[in-house]
Simulated assay, not measured.
Amino acid sequence: MTRIAVVGGHGQVAKHLHIALRRSEHTPVALVRNPDYREELEGLGAEVRLLDIEADDAAAFANAFEGCGAVVFAAGGGPDGDIERKRTVDLEGSLKSIEGARRAGIGRFVQLSAIGVDNPVPQDTEPVWRAYVEAKRDADAALRDSGLDWTIIRPGRLTDDPATDAVRLAPEVEPGEIPRADVGAVLAAVLDEPGTVGQQVDLVAGNDTVADAVRALV
């Protein structure tokens, strides 16, 4: 059993990830700013540690990662219209997580991103969406250059539908939807597959089970 640090541990995908990690006999360590989340997250089987993604520095991230064997960056600034939080959470939070993992001696790092963020952003794109895409793009580029054992998962439009265990996972796919529950299952599955190190893949609903889709990447 390995402790897995989950940055953004109260996020909607992260909650599904905690459940998936417990099923694979890992201990999720949910890193959150608000201590009021503790009871809910412990109910999902997670250990809870406090971390403020925006206010804390890389040293605090390293301390929060103590005793963990891998890091999953699953945080996001959310659809609140706050452009600044796309930088401080989606980009800077990822950068501090990368540096924190280095300081803590953790090599394995899985990042939740978004489909299509490497594509050119049209000039007439809404400013908040542009900020989000650019933050995710730059965070992924930093992780690819980090020297860590990284995997980047880029899901399509997220839904709250029940898990299907029917996905498509490939370096590039047509945009589509995917339940958050299936995204959590994929994040947990790639952590346990060394053959996914160094891979950046898109994720949408499809016809393969999560296990088969991950095996096909190796």
Rank of each mutant, 00 (worst) to 15 (best):
T88M: 03
G77F: 02
V210H: 07
R130W: 00
Q200L: 15
G195H: 03
A60G: 03
G81P: 03
L17Q: 06
N207K: 10
H16E: 15
L143Y: 04
G76V: 01
L191C: 08
V218A: 15
P28H: 05
L17K: 04
D118K: 11
G100W: 02
K15R: 15
A14Y: 04
V210N: 08
L41I: 09
V117I: 14
K136W: 06
L50P: 04
T159Q: 02
L112D: 02
H18E: 09
D82Y: 01
A58P: 09
S24Y: 00
P28T: 10
R23H: 14
I106D: 01
F61P: 01
V186A: 12
D124Y: 00
V201D: 04
G184F: 08
G198C: 13
A14N: 12
Q199W: 05
A131V: 07
L50S: 07
G116S: 06
A166M: 13
T159I: 13
A59K: 12
V32I: 15
W129G: 04
I83W: 00
E40V: 14
L44M: 10
V183Q: 08
A114D: 03
L41P: 06
D52W: 12
R85K: 15
L51G: 00
M1F: 00
D36N: 09
W150V: 06
V71N: 00
T151V: 13
A75I: 02
P155Q: 05
V72Y: 00
G100T: 03
L217F: 14
